[in-house]
Each structure stands twice: as structure tokens, then as C-alpha cells.
Design a protein around this nucleic acid. Structure first.
Lengths: 361, 361
DNA sequence: GTTCGCTATAGAAACGCTTCTAAAAACACC
DNA sequence: GGTGTTTTTAGAAGCGTTTCTATAGCGAAC
């Protein structure tokens, strides 16, 4: 016996067969005499035996390993706060169940490599982190029969992928409703990244609620962003240079909302006195920065946790029919959205004056 | 051929032996006739053959997988900004080299499980993220012969572990030197988490430089922190209630420096006018918050990158003698440290008045 | 035309485990 | 003390690769 001890070494030392050793070491000791069990156990302990995972996986035809795949778009994991939270939830569920996690970050320039690295028998299932439109990962079902759960993107049914995500539509509807309830009827919107489904879902909900309330949608107040804070600032510049201004702006996420507000501060437009701002995501750093942003809070950790749970369920039952789990978001009212009752209740002229006051540049 | 195609299926279709197939598919085709090579290649392609990684690993006795192990102390990866940056660097080096990454987050309550999950033939080497004092991971050499590189902790030699870290000592020395050059001679310090080696190294450098300049060390100005922002605030309360105040405070990291400054603002003590503050780390969120903190910037990404490089080098050469790579930090001068020349050059009374002015509470 | 020395290909033994199947041992029963 | 039944234990065939070693095939050299 040179190198690491193997099952055969243990069997030899215990004076029994490999089968017996294997069985006992796997806890199937009820079928053996106490004496035998003890001999095997102590032999294994004395040799410092540790079963070889690779050999075990080969024989069992499963690996108890889950792949976590980042969309090639989000190259560096660092700047993807979303991924961290989800990953934490995934870890929290998988770790106690003795599953391992393989981190897969495909290069954008070599999509074929993705399949070579994923569907090669080294993982049992996969969690896809926020695949964006046009991502090769979406073609999953064409290339692989491995169970997969997508998180962070509520995808169209046609992709046949199980999904866990927050309910973007419902949450944005709630937020929009609330802003309207505060008396606002002139509301702008900053859209998210055009390749993210969530961006479209949030925008659609915004438009729907406005329509339901009979509020006209002013397209010049709906600006394109990309979820980055800078795009919020750019949107601010575009919006605030207009003659006629909304009394409130909803951004499709917090980063853009903060970018927007920073530009407001530069232009000395008080938030929320002149213009109310709402975000979406309840990003950790915004709170830490001391900004009292009214926003939608949602549990990304929970998303990861449930995704892992769903995946394991599919693994165990073999039932891999696509499922969709949507987690509701929560409206968090802080201070960047002020009631517009004062404005709404007084006749138009007054409101107009205030609006114009806000548009000075 | 049911299930996924194997090497045998490909061989059968190409009408040759498994050996031939394996060789050609691995690129050793120079020893075969062009005709044969083509037959194998197209057979593999037609069947959609993908080699089974588990079987390959077993036969090759290596896995081209690196484990990234988080210290049980840092439970949730989310809140460990350090780990993200390092991980990015590790990924950047490993991914193009076709290494896979296994994320290992041991539970604190079951240290034995660590070895069961790590040293079981499923990985070729390991990167240990910031092991703290008393961590079971430090006993690495007792349990495993797997190559390992520790990052984020400059450990004593006795652990026989290879390491990549920033040069805490030199960087803190530079920072302290600079604060002194600004004319400060009354300097306080907020210590980092007592279980982190970096905390001790930074403190030691601070003390050394003060001594070298013949500046007396006032123990009542050296406060315990734990690297968290709250601990910076607590230290502020403790320090600022003293009768005699330093003109500058160096915190062992940015988080504590910001916590300290927030308390200063509450107490209406202007930074840097009354008290200068310096941090360490150049944390991303601080910049984003718009705080112009003078600090030490260091490249965590680089740390991860070099750690991966070192590990692969050890894997390839078999030379696993412990090495230590220290990366220098860079002083970033922003606005929270003001020159104290004005104070230092005038006679004591004046300075005392200013100090007292700062200590009102 | 036999032998040598190539090259191209195939056979077969690992790798370390799981698990199906069969055999041996132990026991009860008539 | 056979026979049948139930426990215990062992044998052996995979799992899908890699790779060492052996064998055809074949032209060149003697």
C-alpha cells in the first residue's frame, strides 16, 4: 500500500472482502456482525482512509455536484451583487446536503466550450444565473438533458426551463400603484438593460398600472437606461432638460435611481420636494450610503435557496417538467417619494409653477 | 447505445479500437492515417460524443479542478467583498487554462467534514481564502498533501503554507509615514479583528513607524475594532470622549474609518479640519459613496490571480515548498487627511485650543 | 525470401469504487 | 442428520476513460 489507502487496503487490514468494507463504510452495517463492523471501522480509521470521490462518482453515475453557471455577459463575478446573494442561498441549501458546487464562468468568445465543460458527467444539475436575451445558455434544452433551473430571469415558456425569480411584474405594479396613491399623475420611468427580461417586465407593469388609472403615458418621460448608475444620471440630464417635468420618476433599479438623484443634486433640484424618485431592488450599498430610497425589496438569497431546493427535487424525483416559482417583492417606503396631495389637490396653475421651478437648469 | 454515447460507441461507428479513438480525440492524431483520423472525428461529431470527465479523472488521477475554500468563519460569501475580488482573479487565471473551480464553504460546526470534502481526490489543489487564527484550515499540512495556497493572510512560516497577500506591513508603514509627514504627531489607531493576522501586522507597522520617528505611543488612542463599520463608530465614541485628542486617526481598514467618520459627523467634529482620518483597503463602496478617504489601495484581484498561478506552478513542477508572495499596496491621497503643519508650526496653546474644540460632545 | 525495424492499430489492464448475484454459513424444523 | 430457509459474506462485473504493451502489416536490407 503506497500512496493513499484504498478500499482494498482497508479490506485487507480488516480481513474481509471489499464488498463488506464498502457496505459497512456506507452505513449498511446492519447486515453484519458487530465484530466485523468494528474491525472494518477501526481499520479504516487507522489507515486514515478517505473514499475517492472520483471513483465513487463513476460507479454511482452521479456526482452530488451542482454547477452554478454565470451568463457569459456578466464576466466578473465581483460586480454582480445579484450573483453573490443568490450564490449564498444556493450554498445554504446545498452545503448541509453534502452537495458540492462547481463554479462555471463561460467565456463569451467560446460558447461551444460551455457544453464541453458542463455536460460532461461532472455535475448532476445546473443553476443558471440570470441568463440574458441571446445567451447561449438559453439553448440549454437543445444541448443537454441535465436538470437546470434559471434564476434572476423570468423567461418565456418556450425555453422549457425551470425558473425561480422575483415577481417583477407584481412588485413594480405595487410600487407604481403606491406612487400614484401619493397623488402623482405625472410619472417618468427609467428603463433597465434592454437585454434583461426583468427590464421589460418592470416597464410593462409600470405602463399597465398607469393605463389602469387612466394616466396618460408620456413617452418623452420614459428613458432608456442599462441598470448602471451612470445611465440613471444620463437619464436625469435628458429628463430634466425638458420643459415640462414629471413630479415623480420610477427607476427600474436602485442603481439608476441613485444615479438620477446624484444628478438632481448637482442641478440643485431637491428630492423629493421637487421630484420624487423610487427605485427597485433595495440594494445593500444604497442603504449603507445613508440614502433613504423608496424601493422594492426582494430576497435574492431566498431565490438561490429555492432554486437549489427545486433542482434537488427534480434530481430526486426525476420530474424535470419546467416549473416557475415567483417570489413577491415588498414595498419599502422611505423618504424619496413625497406625497403629491398638496399639488394634486390645488388647481393646475400652482402645480405647474412648482414643476417649472423644478426644471430650471 | 442507449444513454450518452461513450468512447466505445464512437469506436464502433468509426470501425476501430477504443485506443485509436481515444488517441485521436485527444489530439494524438499524428500517428494515424488521415483517413482514420477523419473517420473517428466525424463519428464523434455525429454521435455528439462528449468525454466523461469523471472517468477521465479516475484514469488520469487528476481532475483539473481547484478548490476554493472559504474559512468557516466567513460564513456568507456575500458579505465578504475580499473573497469576491480574489475569486475573480482566480477565475481569470484558471478559466482559460481549462481548470474548474469547486467552491467549498465548510460549516464551522463540523471541521472533520472539511477533509472528507476536500481531500477525496476530487480536486488537484486548493486556495484557502483568508484563514483566521485558530482555523482548522491552518492544520492543512497535517491532513493533506494536496498543494495549497493561502491568500489574504500572511501566516507565520511554521504552517508551511504557500501564501499570496498584500504587504500589510509595508503598506501601513507608508501610510503612517505619510500621515506623519503631514505634520501629525498625535496619532490614534483603530485595530482590526483580533483573529486576523493582517490586523496585527498593520498595527505593528503603525507602532514601529511612530517609534522610528520618536513619537510617543499613547495607548489610550489605540482602540480595538473588528474591521466592521460599527466598531469604527464605537471607537470614535471612546476616543472622542477623551480630554486630549489626536489630530489624526488611522483605521486598520476603510470600513472602520467610515464608521469613525460617521460618528464624527454626528458629533459635529469636522474631518479633516479637526481630525484627520485614514483608512486601508480602498473599498469600492466607499468611493461610490463619494467619500474622499485617504487610504491604501491594493489589488485583491491580483492576489487571486497570482495565487492561482502559483498553485498551478506547484502542480506542474511538483515543487510544493512553501513560497510567499507579497504585493505592495499604494497610498491613495484624497481629502480626509489634512496637513497639520499649521498646527505643528504654531506654539502648543493654539493647538490645544483646537483639540479641545474638537472634543466637545 | 527471411529477418529487421518501422509504423499503425488493437488488446487488456488499470483507476477505486458500487452493487448485482451467487455461494457459504447458520439456523430451525421434521 | 437431512432439507429448506434465512442470514452473512465473497466474487465479479461493471462505470468510461487512459495508457502500457503487444501484435499486425509492410517496405528495406541482407
Amino acid at each position: 500500500m503506497r500512496g493513499k489507502p484504498t478500499l482494498r487496503d482497508v479490506a485487507q487490514r480488516a480481513g474481509c472482502s471489499i464488498t463488506t468494507t464498502s457496505n459497512i463504510l456506507q452505513g449498511r452495517s446492519h447486515m453484519y456482525k458487530e465484530d466485523m463492523v468494528q474491525r472494518v471501522l477501526s481499520a479504516a480509521h487507522e489507515l486514515g482512509y478517505r473514499p475517492n470521490a472520483t471513483a465513487r462518482n463513476l460507479a454511482r453515475r452521479r456526482t452530488t455536484t451542482i454547477g452554478v453557471v454565470l451568463d457569459p455577459q456578466h464576466a466578473r463575478i465581483t460586480h454582480n451583487v445579484y450573483a453573490h446573494d443568490v450564490l449564498d442561498g444556493v450554498l445554504a441549501y446545498l452545503e448541509p446536503r453534502d452537495y458540492d458546487i462547481r463554479l462555471i464562468t463561460p467565456r463569451a468568445n467560446d460558447p461551444a466550450a460551455v457544453w464541453r465543460r458542463i455536460d460532461n458527467g461532472s455535475i448532476d444539475g445546473v443553476i443558471l444565473i440570470a441568463p440574458v436575451m441571446g445567451s447561449p445558455l438559453l439553448e440549454w434544452r437543445h444541448y443537454s438533458s441535465l436538470p437546470a433551473v434559471a434564476v434572476g430571469s423570468t423567461l418565456p415558456d418556450e425555453y422549457l426551463l425551470s425558473q425561480v425569480d422575483i415577481d417583477n411584474d407584481a412588485a413594480m405594479a405595487t410600487l407604481t400603484e403606491w406612487v400614484i396613491q401619493q397623488g402623482h399623475r405625472a410619472i417618468g420611468f427609467i428603463k433597465g438593460h434592454p437585454l434583461h427580461w426583468s427590464a421589460h417586465q418592470r416597464e410593462r407593469a409600470f405602463r399597465r398600472i398607469l393605463s389602469q388609472h387612466g394616466i396618460p403615458i408620456r413617452e418623452e418621460w420614459i428613458l432608456q437606461g442599462d441598470y448602471g448608475p451612470e445611465s440613471g444620471a444620463i437619464a436625469a440630464t435628458q429628463l430634466l432638460s425638458q420643459k415640462d417635468l414629471p413630479t415623480a420618476v420610477i427607476a427600474a433599479n436602485d442603481d439608476m435611481a441613485v444615479g438620477f438623484m446624484q444628478k438632481c443634486r448637482e442641478l440643485e433640484i431637491p428630492v423629493p420636494e421637487t421630484i420624487s424618485v423610487a427605485g427597485f431592488d433595495d440594494a445593500y450599498w444604497v442603504q449603507r450610503m445613508g440614502i433613504q430610497l423608496t424601493t422594492i425589496q426582494h430576497d435574492r438569497y431566498q431565490v438561490g435557496y429555492l432554486a437549489a431546493q427545486l433542482l434537488l427535487h427534480q434530481l430526486e424525483t426525476g420530474d424535470s417538467r419546467p416549473q416557475r416559482i415567483l417570489i413577491p417583492g415588498t414595498l419599502v417606503v422611505r423618504r424619496t417619494v413625497a406625497p403629491a396631495y398638496a399639488l394634486a389637490s390645488v388647481p393646475t396653475p400652482n402645480a405647474t409653477i412648482l414643476t417649472e421651478g423644478g426644471s430650471r437648469q
